[in-house]
Simulated scan of single mutants.
Amino acid sequence: MAVFTPVTREQLEQWLGHYELGSLLAFEGIASGIENSNFFVDTERGRYVLTLFERLDAEQLPFYLGLMHHLAAAGIPCPDPVPGRDGAALRSLNGKPAALVTRLRGRSEMHPGAEQCAQIGATLARMHLAAADYDGRQPNLRGLAWWQEATPRVLPFLAAAQARLLRDELTAQEAFAGSTACAALPGSAVHADLFRDNALFEDGRLGGIIDFYFAGRDTWLFDLAVTCNDWCIDDASGGFDPARLAALLQAYAGVRRPAPEERAAWPMMLRAAALRFWLSRLYDLHLPRPAEMVTPKDPAHFERILRARRAGVPALD
């Protein structure tokens, strides 16, 4: 569990005085995530999620909070930031930027079937279209520039074969990022982290998409690749499950059909999505931050996925 900045009940009660939410009934740390400190908060007026931001600063955060509010207003099921009495959704708690958002119903589905994958695909496409007119300009902070910065820091911890793989893939992604094929790909603000634990289901139906704090401006294809690389795979091998992949992609295309240039770039973008998470997991494992409670995720999972994507992928129809 990751709680980098602890919060006492007295501190939270005082902080909630900025809101019209009634008295604090209960709160507890959330046992997922390794980037921020998150808490469930119950008050007389409802149920919320409190986030203390450990890496993002107060200048960056309006992008994320604004994106969630923009999407929620467009009917996308996602948390909506809660304004205080002064209208501000962002303030400080224990020296960290902090925000309160609405809490969605449901639980993560860690073993989804084709039906759940289809719901994710259709909602992701709706989210892309809804974000097209969002004017926030925050780049994807875990994009190519971060890969270039992080790679030399994790290389000393890797076996020779892993180091060769990482260097080779980064070189390939640098070349692709500078190509006209990449420049032609459509995009907007995207979630960039839509894993199974960032979606909630209730009675088999999608209740909402959460945790937008890795969002940034990127291609829609990258966001789709990130999602498929988690929702549609065989965890043991890293290969795709054909039924789940077909369900997600067909549902996505039913709302927004990928352009020819996106279909051509699909293999490279699946590799990019795998590289991004292999590298971040390597970084979190070998270069961790002090934390009250933290469980780093296994980098070998995304190493398998990257090797599988380099070996070949199904076409994006």
Results as ranks from 00 to 15, higher is better:
residue 53 F to W: 05
residue 198 N to T: 09
residue 102 T to R: 12
residue 256 R to I: 00
residue 5 T to M: 02
residue 29 G to F: 02
residue 154 V to C: 01
residue 106 G to K: 02
residue 124 L to H: 01
residue 162 Q to N: 08
residue 25 L to E: 15
residue 38 N to C: 05
residue 83 P to M: 11
residue 114 A to S: 14
residue 196 R to G: 12
residue 75 G to S: 12
residue 281 R to E: 10
residue 238 G to L: 03
residue 110 M to N: 04
residue 71 L to F: 03
residue 59 E to I: 13
residue 6 P to D: 10
residue 149 E to N: 11
residue 262 E to Y: 00
residue 196 R to I: 09
residue 282 L to Y: 09
residue 296 P to M: 10
residue 90 L to P: 11
residue 100 L to G: 07
residue 211 D to Y: 01
residue 186 P to W: 04
residue 81 P to V: 13
residue 160 A to K: 12
residue 270 L to K: 07
residue 250 Q to A: 12
residue 45 R to N: 12
residue 222 F to I: 06
residue 91 R to Y: 08
residue 242 P to F: 04
residue 102 T to W: 05
residue 91 R to V: 07
residue 187 G to P: 12
residue 297 K to E: 14
residue 205 R to D: 00
residue 31 A to N: 13
residue 309 R to A: 03
residue 161 A to V: 09
residue 140 N to I: 00
residue 190 V to L: 13
residue 268 M to E: 13
residue 73 A to P: 06
residue 224 L to M: 11
residue 5 T to D: 06
residue 189 A to C: 11
residue 164 R to D: 13
residue 9 R to L: 05
residue 93 L to W: 07
residue 24 L to W: 02
residue 159 A to P: 01
residue 298 D to K: 07
residue 62 P to L: 10
residue 213 Y to I: 04
residue 244 R to T: 08
residue 230 D to G: 05
residue 149 E to S: 14
residue 219 T to V: 06
residue 307 R to S: 05
residue 302 F to D: 07
residue 29 G to V: 03
residue 19 Y to S: 14
residue 52 L to T: 06
residue 234 D to V: 06
residue 232 C to S: 04
residue 13 E to M: 09
residue 229 N to I: 02
residue 219 T to L: 10
residue 232 C to A: 14
residue 109 E to R: 01
residue 62 P to M: 07
residue 274 A to N: 12
residue 79 P to K: 05
residue 153 R to I: 03
residue 112 P to T: 08
residue 142 R to I: 10
residue 290 P to D: 04
residue 225 A to H: 02
residue 282 L to F: 11
